[in-house]
């Protein structure tokens, strides 16, 4: 058997490439697993993320998919001693198809996850993090999809940032969280929940995405009325025949969201004003 010089082998491989027209159509949704580090420090949590790339016109779904669709799910297979936190969903967008409103993500989306490695992971030993990601991708039609994704990291005395570190950090920074500037007042009214929001001075509130499905009507989008400086009111319409819940949680986006992080709200529907100053944890 004669030996092919490495350079020639490369040329041969390239010329044997599949003709363009024989390539399969690009998948509507592609998933990968990324991390903010290439090397982690044992015992020190770091950020990973599921990256979803939706082809033009396609989208996947938020944790509450809205009137139709299905949330993306992730199941982890991690090395012994590793744990993964819950998906930290960025604020979704509204997608309206034939009057049906759903909540989801288009383009490139990172769903951050905190990964906690064990304190006793030996230096130099590779750790392969694996996840099964399942999604529903839709434009007008819907196609379920899934992928087994993985990333190989290793341990070091100090964590080493990856090329993805900035993108992951931006994704983490965009996850909705309780906003101490916001005060929220909610009470049940006929067919809805009347809310007053204080603390949106420079940016008006835009959409409210409830964490739970089947409670609020997704359409029409609530219209906010400015009733004072930084004070806005609206009525969130309940689904027909659904009583007002005693508590609600969800994500509030602001007009000009680039300048203000979406707020995670968790409030009692009892007419009391609730400061959203719980600094603990980022939810959802």
């Amino acid at each position: 058997m004669f030996k092919v010089p490495p350079g020639l082998a490369l040329v041969l491989a390239a010329s044997a490439a599949i003709p363009r027209e024989a390539r399969p159509a690009e998948a509507p949704i592609r998933a990968s697993l990324v991390a903010a580090v290439t090397r982690f420090r044992p015992g020190e949590p770091f950020d990973g993320a599921i990256r979803l790339e939706a082809a033009r016109g396609w989208h996947t779904y938020w944790t509450n998919p809205g009137e139709a669709g299905l949330a993306t799910t992730v199941r982890w297979t991690l090395p012994e001693g590793f744990t993964a936190g819950p998906l930290r969903w960025p604020a979704p967008k509204r997608f309206v198809t034939g009057g049906i409103v759903s909540f989801g993500h288009d383009g490139a989306t990172l769903l951050p996850v905190e990964i906690r490695p064990p304190a006793d992971w030996p230096a130099g030993r590779a750790a392969t993090l694996r996840a099964r990601v399942d999604w529903l991708g839709c434009r007008e039609e819907c196609v379920p999809g899934g992928a087994d994704v993985e990333i190989v990291l290793s341990a070091a005395e100090a964590a080493v940032a990856s090329d993805e570190a900035d993108a992951v950090a931006r994704a983490v920074a965009s996850v909705p969280r309780p906003d101490p500037r916001v005060r929220f007042h909610a009470r049940a009214v006929e067919g809805g929940i009347a809310v007053r929001l204080e603390g949106a001075v420079a940016e008006a509130p835009a959409a409210f995405f409830p964490l739970a499905g089947g409670v609020l009507r997704a359409a029409p989008e609530p219209a906010w009325t400015r009733v004072g400086v930084g004070v806005h009111e609206t009525v969130l319409a309940l689904e027909a025949g659904v009583p007002a819940p005693s508590r609600m949680a969800g994500v509030l986006t602001f007009a000009g969201a680039e300048t203000r992080r979406p707020a995670f709200l968790d409030f009692a529907v009892d007419g009391r004003t609730v400061p959203q100053d719980n600094p603990k944890g980022v939810r959802p």
Binding site: G69, G214, E239
Partner: peptide, 13 residues
């Protein structure tokens, strides 16, 4: 259980 949130594709009105 008289009412639940339906799941599926959106009706293509």
């Amino acid at each position: 259980v008289p009412k639940t949130a339906p799941y599926g594709c959106g009706v293509k009105y």
